[in-house]
Amino acid sequence: MLKLSDIQVVYNKTPVLDQFNLDIAAGEIVGILGPSGCGKSTLLRAIAGFVEIAKGEICLNNSCLASCQCTIPPEKRGVGMMFQDNALFPHLSVAQNIAFGINKLSKTERKLRVAELIELIQLQGLEGRYPHELSGGQQQRVALARALAPKPSLILFDEPFSNLDTTLSEHLAVEIRQLLKQQNTAAILVTHTFREAQLMCDRYGTLESCLLGTMQHAA
């Protein structure tokens, strides 16, 4: 479904990623481990479209997102993304945040989809709250619901648990895995915590092991 072939990303004239290949099947969750500064985040940002690639090709569902000839802007890629700080819009309520990406649907459809997602993340009754009135874990779930709302076939997670304590992050890792599986959404998780990758992913490895094709499969 997602196919990265021979990607190179150059930053300040030095390649951050070089000759990178990765194939992900529909609904598959892949974890990429590594210390900070090794290019994991750059990889996600290249897939999302915030960073241009110098060489290679990114294809999603058999259409080209980025190559040397064409670059589709992030807003037209249909790739969801979760950020370290959740990036919830502070001026919008929970329901409005979730509905942000599905503004093209009709009003009733939008309402139904929001209600469905609120139920999925189990935040019934909190639709009208603003982000600062939620706990860290709740904010994370809202961010996930917002990313899931437009039904993207792929969601990118950039160190989503780095601001949470270990117990909560392990709990959320399992929960998010279930939610993704229910929606049959593929995902890439970037993290420096082995345990999170183990709990959430079908397959994981370091950036180098991706290059070598020696990723491990979770039990």
Partner: peptide, 12 residues
Amino acid sequence: SMTEAARSLGAS
């Protein structure tokens, strides 16, 4: 990240 979140959700 707010800008990027909005972009990845399809905002022009």
